[in-house]
Design a protein around this nucleic acid. Structure first.
Lengths: 189, 189
DNA sequence: CGCGCGATTGAGTAATTTCAAATCTAGTGG
DNA sequence: CCACTAGATTTGAAATTACTCAATCGCGCG
């Protein structure tokens, strides 16, 4: 049994080990090497992933070739190309590993079947999306309200561990700032 | 029975009229005048609202007194101070009416009770938060990837009706641009 | 008619970007 | 163990974008 996911789920709902064992059958597990793509733009099928180990970046490359980072996610985080996953469309994001990574992943069909069968899991995912919403709200407000220095400072407070494990150029892209600007900011913080 | 909410719910799940009638008992209805606050920073209790009629702006005022707009919402949209509503904390947003407005609103406790009693409603709200997430993802990416002109152009495509009903200064704040910049942009689009 | 709000325009300023070059660092093969 | 290289970070200077502040314009409503 995957203890990491078990504990993660147990933070929100309580399940018996039997239930958990059955729930795990809806997921698959896979290992990825550093630099390997988990999702690549144009993939026909998207999955939702839970990170057991490692760290990934989820990014979008605009038509000028500039990379913008939606998420930098490590252990216990969920990630997916949300739009493709939920609408069954082709992926538009790239998600690749910044370290060797291992995830549990689930298809849309399996997730729906899981929610159907285990009511508590429907509750669990509703709550997960709720907290995700709140986090995205904060990010939008931060992009609207704060200048580069403030955003960087908030990032350091909020995700100190991510900051340690990730090249600063990626943090810059996450914050919507050029790497040079971020570099000039560092001494002041 | 509130047809507008009925139709809104029916887009995602199917319910009998009896079920719908009971569901409506979890909500309350209220009318607000133009310029009236629905949520004001510091409110001790937050509710989730469904707009029957009218248009509201949900905004955050930073410590320099600048107003940043999280949402401009009209009929059939949900709004709340998401963080306060879901975490039971004091509100930090201001939400007020740009026109005379009427909403159905629900407390956190009632929403949870509603989801508990009607499994389909739990599904409904999970889906609602899913689409909300996707929309927020797009907004973050737009703030990261696009300059002021592109964001404005996207806004016009996406929310033409909102644009008609709302002062441009508010659209500017929604896009994270000064009103003057937006004004200088207009002729080019 | 005049008030007041919203929108526009102009000019100077601040923040951030871009491009280019220099510096630093960690990992690799000899 | 050291030299070497690729990647990451920093620094500099010019260019750009958007902002602020201030003044003006336009229009609907009492």
């Amino acid at each position: 049994m995957e203890l990491r996911l078990k504990h993660h789920i147990n933070e929100i709902i309580t399940l018996t080990d039997d239930e958990l064992n059955e729930i795990f059958t809806f997921f698959s597990k896979k290992k990825y090497k550093k630099h390997q793509y988990i999702v690549q733009e144009g993939d026909l099928k998207a999955y939702e992933h839970f990170i057991l180990k490692g760290i990934v970046k989820s990014s979008y490359t605009d038509n000028e070739g500039k990379e913008h980072i939606m998420q930098l996610a490590a252990e216990n985080w969920w990630f997916s190309d949300t739009n493709a996953f939920n609408n069954g469309t082709v992926t538009t994001m790239n998600i690749d590993c910044l370290e060797n990574t291992e995830t549990l992943f689930i298809s849309y069909e399996n997730k729906e079947a899981l929610c159907e069968k285990f009511r508590k899991m429907e509750y669990f995912f509703r709550k997960k999306y709720t907290t995700g919403n709140i986090a995205l709200h904060k990010r939008v407000l931060s992009l609207l309200s704060n200048d580069a220095a403030e955003r960087y400072s908030q990032f350091l407070n909020q995700y100190p561990l991510i900051h340690q494990r990730v090249p600063k150029a990626l943090v810059a892209a996450y914050l919507g700032v050029s790497r040079e600007t971020l570099s000039r900011l560092s001494p002041k913080i």
